[in-house]
Simulated scan of single mutants.
Amino acid sequence: MPITTTRGRETGLAYAGELSQERMEALDAIDPGWAPDGWDVAWQRCYRLTLAHVRAGGTLPAAAAGELIVQGEDLGTWIAAQKAGWEQLTPAQKFLLESVGVDTADGGEAAVSGRRSQDERWAVNLAAAHQFHTREGHLRVPRKHVEAIRRGGGDNGEDGQETVVKLGAWIDNTRRRAAKLSPRRRADLDELGMHW
């Protein structure tokens, strides 16, 4: 049953973001691989980011967490997880990973835990919040603000890797999920004068 908008027009969608059967068939005719069964959006996103990175001349990380973060995705952690779960991947997924240079010879190595990855992402976002607070004196970050931070500089004078954080969106999302934050994470932001 089509859903109508407030202006009386039919959208043809049961809920926002759902494609009609007709549109899905049209996309299948163009590219049968546009939405493979069993491949979640996160897997496809990480693969596409990895592909773009390799095509731009980048090298794959040595499966170290935090070594390669692109658009907020830790590709080192993701690649390690793919290697660890190699047997559960479809033949097409294996082919795609091999085509971008994922070395499966060490596929038995343990994946970095997802919890650690979340903690690392929190640390990067919190570092951006600290930098913003130090510079601006407050944590009233505009929703679309991005903050560039430097991480991992060494003793030899190197600046380290620059990471771009969508700080405004992170602050806004964190406020919305305040009830789910651990006391430590909430305290981290309270120290910066977070307005809940």
Rank of each mutant, 00 (worst) to 15 (best):
R135T: 08
R135Y: 01
R135A: 11
G137L: 01
H138G: 00
H138T: 00
H138L: 00
L139S: 01
L139Y: 00
R140C: 07
R140K: 14
V141D: 01
V141Q: 01
V141C: 01
P142I: 00
P142D: 15
R143T: 08
R143K: 13
K144P: 08
K144D: 13
K144Q: 13
K144S: 15
K144R: 15
K144C: 13
K144L: 14
H145D: 07
H145R: 09
H145K: 06
H145G: 02
V146F: 08
V146W: 10
V146M: 14
V146Y: 13
E147R: 02
A148Y: 09
A148E: 13
A148R: 13
A148I: 15
A148T: 15
A148V: 15
I149E: 04
I149W: 06
R150V: 05
R150T: 08
R151P: 01
R151W: 05
R151Y: 07
R151Q: 13
G152F: 03
G152Q: 09
G152W: 04
G152N: 12
G153H: 07
G154P: 03
D155T: 08
N156H: 10
N156S: 14
N156V: 07
N156P: 04
N156W: 08
N156C: 10
N156L: 09
G157D: 03
G157E: 00
G157T: 00
E158I: 02
E158T: 09
E158V: 00
D159H: 06
G160F: 09
G160C: 10
G160Q: 11
G160N: 08
G160E: 14
Q161E: 13
Q161C: 08
Q161T: 12
Q161V: 11
Q161G: 04
Q161W: 04
E162W: 14
T163G: 05
T163E: 14
V164E: 12
V164D: 11
V165R: 03
V165H: 05
V165N: 06
V165K: 03
V165L: 07
K166G: 15
K166H: 10
K166V: 06
K166L: 15
L167Q: 04
G168A: 09
G168E: 10
G168L: 08
G168Q: 06
G168M: 05
W170L: 10
W170G: 04
W170R: 07
I171C: 03
I171Q: 01
